[in-house]
Design a protein around this nucleic acid. Structure first.
Lengths: 152, 152
DNA sequence: CAAGGTATGTCAGAATACTGACATGGGTCA
DNA sequence: TGACCCATGTCAGTATTCTGACATACCTTG
């Protein structure tokens, strides 16, 4: 008899496991960021800005995997609260280069440490070479999904 | 001079890559499910029910990584549209065992095929042993995050 | 048996993210 | 030059998910 249905087997599905891992990571991050009064998206935006100063709203959106509309409202809040600054006028085109303020940098400092500890915990059971392998394999999956956009 | 900041390096962070992969997978799934008039969460719920008939609202929520409140509103919609059924009264405790209707099963059939093709695309570049390795590594990450809940 | 603890279903409100739409700036190309 | 095309910023409305709260049902434990 076996299975009648040829569906996705959740017990062995890499897609399901990927979602599970991502969900667990996000929950763990929320847990340590909440005491700091920061959400995962807030943190992601600040972290991205720290490493790539001058990114525009749309670029930040792509880097944090949300729409540019979502990032726009987030940036307005962060700007209002004094964590980031944007020039009143675009130096070129319409893109407004965003930068962290000293306050934003300070706030990020603690959050970044907390998130690093979460990531370290996640990788605690993996050797250096296993981590490299995981990185390589995940990159391959992302590439495959992007390179073959539905049609093929 | 090297980096002044000891932050999370997005270029090499497994956590960031995990989020990227999960985001890419979700986007790809949304793309193929949209023509079928189904969202990712709808699909996840139906797929879970197909493999584990009789699951309760709370169990479905845990299996799809959302809160039981979210799953509750989803189930009410699925019930209203005739995809699932729940008894009016709980046979034991408060848990209401949920089951797919023939209509729900039919609807799932196409969606499941579409999702399977997405997963196949994601894994196209990986050998059998690489897929096993990816599974093992991701499981390790999930276990580490769960077993060491913040404190340690 | 009574009391506390845990799990469940559900309602209500708030937060978050998305889709749709529009105007603007810059580049390409005939 | 002028007509397209694409990317961007932003406003508005909608959809989705979450947190908070409450009542109920079972299961211990004293």
């Amino acid at each position: 008899m076996g299975q009648e249905r040829a569906g996705v087997d959740l017990e062995t599905s890499l897609g399901y496991l990927l979602k599970e891992a991502s969900s667990a990571l996000r929950a763990a991050m929320e847990e340590v960021l909440r005491p700091l009064g920061m959400s995962v998206t807030h943190y992601s935006c600040l972290e991205l800005l720290a490493q790539r100063p001058g990114l525009s709203n749309s670029e930040l959106a792509r880097g944090t995997f949300v729409t540019r509309q979502t990032m726009n409202v987030l940036l307005q809040a962060l700007e209002r609260d004094g964590y980031v600054t944007r020039p009143a006028e675009a130096p070129v085109g319409k893109a407004l280069p965003t930068r962290l303020t000293p306050s934003g940098r300070r706030s990020l400092e603690k959050a970044s440490a907390a998130v690093r500890s979460v990531e370290a915990r996640m990788l605690a059971g993996l050797s250096e070479s296993e981590q490299s392998e995981a990185f390589r394999l995940l990159q391959g999956m992302v590439r495959s999904l992007r390179d073959a956009p539905e049609g093929a």
